[in-house]
């Protein structure tokens, strides 16, 4: 070999006790770099195309609304409420979070690339946080892209519908949906870290439990993520004063069910995300790398 020995080799070879240096890297810095590279990795995955195409569904519905409802029978606020409540929250957010959340850690471990993070002086929390943030960013980006596209379809050449109330409703809807993507991705990332074959349980959770439990009577529905997201959406819609929230009112009158406050729902969802994150970190610390 013609290459000279690395200068530090002598120190390492002599067993130089670099104890002061044997600390893991800072959580924020390492999570940042992992998130940065993981994001670049995730946006190159083939599934981004298929998920991206699925995310066009609300845009297609908005196009149909523009083409078919020339009389203005469906007000834009109602369309937005239906898109957010039925399409995004029940379907889109779950799909996109499932696609990128499940794979955040699990896929990297299955492929074997996690070994390059694992054999660095990184806290397992930093690896988890970096991968999770990257997955949430990709999921959020796809959802945001879809929301912006739907908004443009609804408003371009139809500027009359843009009112302060509509804008407030749109922005608050976007925030709730993006928050939903963050929470669901955190849940699915933990599931992907836990199970070797997480797809079926995740689908059962997203489209089984969340659908059935979310519409269950009494307080059972409060055990679902979708209920709290809907609650946040209803509150944002009601606060604009532009859309009658009949279903909610009817439930209050008939079942004497008073929905929790938006802050309650927000805190519950935040707690779910934090618990899922903590659980995921714990699972990752215990994980064994066989590839």
């Amino acid at each position: 070999m013609s290459v000279a020995a690395p200068p530090a080799a002598a120190g390492a070879a002599a067993g130089n006790d670099r104890a002061g240096n044997d600390r893991p890297l800072g959580l924020a810095v390492s999570a940042y770099w992992i998130a940065f590279f993981s994001y670049r990795e995730m946006v190159r995955r083939r599934r981004i195309l298929s998920v991206g195409l699925l995310m066009l569904l609300p845009v297609v519905l908005a196009v149909a609304w523009r083409l078919l409802d020339r009389e203005g029978a469906i007000p834009p606020e109602l369309l937005l409420a239906n898109l957010s409540g039925m399409v995004y929250i029940h379907f889109m957010v779950a799909i996109v979070s499932l696609a990128f959340g499940l794979s955040a850690i699990g896929e990297s471990a299955d492929e074997g690339t996690i070994i390059y993070y694992w054999t660095r002086p990184l806290r397992r929390e930093a690896i988890y946080l970096g991968r999770l943030v990257a997955a949430q960013a990709v999921a959020g980006l796809l959802v945001a892209g879809s929301l912006v596209a739907a908004f443009l379809v609804m408003t371009v050449g139809n500027f009359g519908i843009i009112s302060l109330d509509f804008l407030k409703l749109y922005v608050s809807t976007c925030l709730v949906i993006l928050f939903g993507a963050v929470v669901y991705t955190a849940i699915f990332a933990a599931v992907g870290t836990w199970l070797k074959k997480p797809m079926l349980p995740a689908i059962l959770f997203a489209f089984g439990w969340e659908s059935i439990g979310g519409n269950a009577p009494l307080r059972l529905q409060e055990l679902t993520v979708v209920f709290h997201l809907r609650n946040l959406l209803h509150n944002s819609a009601a606060s604009t004063g532009s859309m009658p929230n009949l279903l909610q009112e009817l439930k209050v009158m008939l079942l004497h069910e008073v929905p929790p406050s938006p802050w309650h729902s927000f805190l519950v969802l935040l707690a779910v995300a934090v618990v899922a994150f903590a659980l995921g970190c714990w699972l990752l610390r215990r994980k064994e790398i066989f590839r």
Partner: peptide, 11 residues
Amino acid sequence: VGLFRRVGFCP
């Protein structure tokens, strides 16, 4: 895990 500074791993 800070000890991984001392370790090189070629999988």
